[in-house]
């Protein structure tokens, strides 16, 4: 562990401030708690919210997994994992099953989460109403009165114009029947994993200075219409590496003649499946 800084980098008063905000966040599911976000040694927009949340919750006995786009090896995931290995000396892991805390950008792992695990999401823009109304004073009022008509109208306009809802990711959800929430820029594919999950979901937006949460076993419903139900992405072929037909796939361009290859975005899931296949063989 590198010296000169406190365990997990943040000083204790900062952690206490974050911890108080986190407790409010779980008590008011989906509500964005303002917090006095600190400058971190990594740039705003690169996961500082998630890093602050992780730093506030992390203990010596935790096993931390960090993913970006579902992968443990992407540069930003590597950088954040190293940061905590260095400043907290905690064990890190690539395995979803073995992790106690999983910090993520843009994905929820394919391996079902378990009770006792904590997901920490990095959030760029926490406010689901932001593109409809840029003013915080106004969006706060809308949340206060659960005045979400504008969002329904926006989705309905999509249906009227394109025949379907065109929001591809960061698809708005209603938490515990009350607060409209951005699930962070995860694909629609991952939205159903939020609903009644046994794991605790924590969301940190560092630059925007907001923390929010979904407790375990809490209803998280993607907005939709009866005649236009919420749908997730699908592919007409399985993963080219492990053959999974039920995971989120990355499209990889293999040549300049239209060649495409589709592989699991969740690298741990893909590798586990390959290992299992090898053992069986």
């Amino acid at each position: 562990m590198s010296s000169g800084y406190n365990f997990a980098y943040l000083d204790e008063p900062t952690k206490r401030m974050l911890r108080r905000s986190l407790l409010k966040a779980v008590a008011i599911p989906g509500y964005q708690v303002p917090f006095a976000s600190r400058e971190m040694p990594l740039p705003f927009g690169w996961g500082t919210g998630g890093i602050q949340v992780t730093a506030a919750i992390l203990g010596r006995d935790d096993r931390l997994k960090v993913i970006d786009q579902g992968a443990d090896d992407t540069t930003n995931a590597v950088s954040i994992r190293d940061f905590f290995a260095k400043t907290a000396g905690v064990a890190t892991t690539l395995s979803t099953r073995d992790a106690t805390v999983i910090q993520t950008r843009h994905r929820i792992p394919e391996t079902p989460l378990q009770h006792g695990q904590i997901m920490v999401f990095q959030v760029p823009i926490p406010e689901p109403l932001r593109w409809l109304e840029p003013r915080e004073t106004e969006t706060r009022r809308m949340h206060a009165f659960a005045d979400y008509g504008a969002m329904h109208l926006k989705l309905y306009e999509d249906v009227a114009r394109y025949g379907r809802i065109t929001t591809a990711y960061d698809y708005p959800v209603l938490v515990a029947g009350r607060y409209l929430m951005r699930p962070s820029p995860i694909p629609r594919f991952d939205n159903p994993k939020l609903d009644a999950s046994p794991a605790l979901m924590l969301f940190g937006a560092g630059r925007e200075k907001r923390i929010y949460a979904v407790p375990p076993y809490t209803s998280v419903k993607s907005l939709d219409f009866e005649d236009h139900p919420f749908t997730i992405e699908s592919w007409d072929r399985p993963c080219a590496r492990c053959g999974a037909a039920d995971s989120y796939l990355d499209e990889i361009i293999t040549d300049d003649r239209g060649g495409r290859r589709f592989v699991c975005s969740d690298t741990d899931h893909c590798n586990q499946r390959l290992d299992a296949k090898e053992k069986a063989a």
Binding site: F7, E12, K15, R19, A27, L200, A213, P216
Partner: peptide, 20 residues
């Protein structure tokens, strides 16, 4: 152990408030 006892206590509180 101020740092680690506070962390353990907090995790317990986070747990009891997120799972009433």
């Amino acid at each position: 152990d101020p740092v680690h006892d506070a962390q353990r206590s907090f995790r317990a509180l986070l747990n009891v408030l997120s799972e009433p």
